[in-house]
Design a protein around this nucleic acid. Structure first.
Ligand SMILES: [Mn+2]
Ligand SMILES: [Mn+2]
Ligand SMILES: [Zn+2]
Ligand SMILES: [Zn+2]
Lengths: 140, 140
DNA sequence: TCAATTTTTATAATAATTATAAATATATAA
DNA sequence: TTATATATTTATAATTATTATAAAAATTGA
């Protein structure tokens, strides 16, 4: 997905979502910062640029983008919901020390369990937790 | 893990957790009902037997059991935290129609991503969503 | 321009979880 | 056993995340 305002507008219109200023701002943010931000992070950063912004708008926009399958939810932790603009299949690793969330490639089709042959699978999430390389180094 | 009161007590004592009546009740519940219950389900069912029970005790007990690695959290949905007594490696499938959560075997080591070779992995969660066989049948 | 519709904002309501302190239960030592 | 200390549970308050509601602002189309 291209970052320009024009392109983002087109993407939204394709999904029959009106490209309001706030919606574009949220999309731009998710594309620029690929750190899987929380609602609070998105809001606190964007409100600097858009002082009238409301947190309800962030929630509304994200829920809209999720329904349109432009954004996915990352529930790697039970106490914080995070959002990800990347919809391609990939796993998430959260470092228990620094909190960073890393993307990693994962061939989910390869480990499709036999038991699930009769299930219709719509969504696949792989969440790992542990210590990231730089935190491992630091600990020594 | 055996279901008897004696055996559960021993399990808790191994982890240096005092086997109080309430803690045993929660453990028994999780073993009997392997449906990945929410705090509310656990509380509402147990309060029938233990009328003085407090919801805070359910939270306290679960957090204790999680820290002791006797129970794991299932965050397959961002709006409801569920709990699972089975600690062996397995994936979870949630049916989007009936809400049932199914366990399935998954060989997580097989699909270990290359990128993660430098990461220390402590926890692995695999969450799938879709439609379960009986709901698929019903839809036709 | 003007009315209809959509979106945003501000605020209230709801729900999940944690914190606090008093009450209860359990363990230990005299 | 009884007294005392410690741990656990309970009731309640506080906090936080999210959704609901309605008014204000922006956008659309005639
Ligand atoms: Mn990601
Ligand atoms: Mn399970
Ligand atoms: Zn780290
Ligand atoms: Zn089903």
């Amino acid at each position: 997905m291209k970052t320009s305002f024009e392109n983002l507008s087109v993407e939204l219109l394709k999904k029959e979502i009106r490209p309001s200023y706030q919606r574009i701002k949220v999309l731009e943010y998710l594309i620029a910062k690929r750190c899987h931000p929380t609602v609070d992070q998105i809001f606190n950063d964007l409100v600097k640029e858009v002082p009238t912004l409301s947190k309800a708008t962030i929630y509304n926009t994200l829920n809209l983008l999720i329904k349109a399958k432009l954004v996915r939810v990352v529930t790697i932790e039970d106490n914080e919901t995070r959002y990800d603009i990347t919809m391609s299949n990939h796993g998430h690793f959260k470092c228990e020390l620094c909190g960073t969330i890393f993307d990693f490639k994962v061939n989910i089709d390869n480990f499709m369990a036999d038991k699930l042959s009769e299930f219709k699978i719509n969504e696949r999430d792989v969440y790992f937790k542990g210590i990231c390389p730089s935190c491992l180094k630091y600990k020594k």
